[in-house]
Design a protein around this nucleic acid. Structure first.
Lengths: 197, 197
DNA sequence: TTTTTGTTTAACAAAAATGTTAAAATAAAA
DNA sequence: TTTTATTTTAACATTTTTGTTAAACAAAAA
């Protein structure tokens, strides 16, 4: 629709992402988004027609981003261990920037409906799970259902960042100290899931 | 306030908990809560005065519940390994019933403010972390900052349940098959965090 | 039974959030 | 420089959600 395109459309979308994914304001209002973007609320309707459509756009881009990250990490030609290392790097970085992305997707699915998920491509994941199985067969990984391995990996990666506000309180840590904990996790997760092998 | 007490107050609170914590409707409206509870929306105001106060009551009970579970699991007289086993059981059960409890608390903190957390007692956690340190010193656990050990434990426990809607899709699993995966995790988590020791 | 107390409800009111319209502002094209 | 197309905005309208009031109802006490 826009031809002149001064970047406002992208600005609104990015601001919505920041509020929702980074700051965890899962039900930011159109006014809050417009204010944070420094535009009039009507602009938001001009570009997206309704709040729902803006949210849908944001959701869909998050889903696509996730899909691309999975693809990038899971179907590369790297040897398995390097592949996992790369995956941890990519997802840890993403989670540090947008810790509430996954939370948003899940709660959105819970309120709007499962049909939202439809477009995710599960092929890369399937091929990765196969590779995990092979590694287990060769004795390079402790045997377990490959889906468990994958859930373990993502649990260790994502959960501490999602729950950061709670853990900062529980451990009495300021932002800086907590971030150090998080960045130290890459090596630790590798150790843990490869069981010292 | 209520003297006759027909159980409506508790019913409303429990229904709110079900919608928010179990079904993941993190911003259920008063109408949705009243409908689900089968009462008139005005009753909700009669007992709680406002939506905010109902939500505050729900939040506070969740916080207290968490506090109690932590206490129950972390300061018992059990030997360390049994203690962890017990903790996994308790929290896995709770997460299966109310997967979005923690998510709710975090997003609430992100929108309302950190002062909400205030009342959590971090003493049981501190004493547990000390015990973890001792186990590491004795060589029963791989050495790492104890807070990392604790985050690992809770990550492995909680994350798959929080993200269930996504993983069911990704693995193409129905509810039954997914639940089997989850219940199989207790033993697996023990193995993983004790590193076969 | 009638009085009192507590509970539930319908009807109404207010506030908050979303959506629409038309006009003003801006910038490129003719 | 006028014209045209696009973008931005203010003002208004609608819908949704929350909150209030007063009356109906129910049950125990007087």
């Amino acid at each position: 629709m826009p031809l002149k395109n001064t970047g406002t459309e992208q600005l609104i979308k990015d601001t919505a992402k920041r509020l929702i994914f980074a700051e965890g304001k899962l039900h930011a209002t159109t006014q809050e988004i417009a204010d944070a973007a420094g535009v009039n609320r009507t602009s938001l309707h001009y570009y997206f027609r309704s709040r729902d459509l803006l949210i849908a756009a944001v959701f869909q881009e998050a889903m696509q981003g996730l899909s691309e990250r999975l693809n990038q990490c899971m179907v590369s030609a790297k040897p398995f261990k390097q592949k996992v290392e790369f995956l941890i790097e990519v997802f840890l970085k993403d989670m540090m920037a947008f810790p509430y992305q996954e939370t948003f997707m899940v709660t959105e699915i819970n309120t709007v409906g499962k049909q939202l998920v439809g477009n995710i491509d599960s092929e890369p994941v399937k091929s990765f799970l196969n590779e995990v199985q092979q590694e287990m067969d060769s004795g390079n990984l402790k045997a377990m259902p490959p889906s468990q391995f994958l859930m373990n990996l993502f649990s260790l990666l994502s959960y501490p960042l999602i729950m950061a506000p709670l853990y900062k309180q529980l451990f009495q840590l300021a932002d800086g100290a907590f971030n150090e904990l998080i960045t130290a996790r890459k090596a630790m997760i590798m150790e843990l899931i490869f069981n010292g092998k």
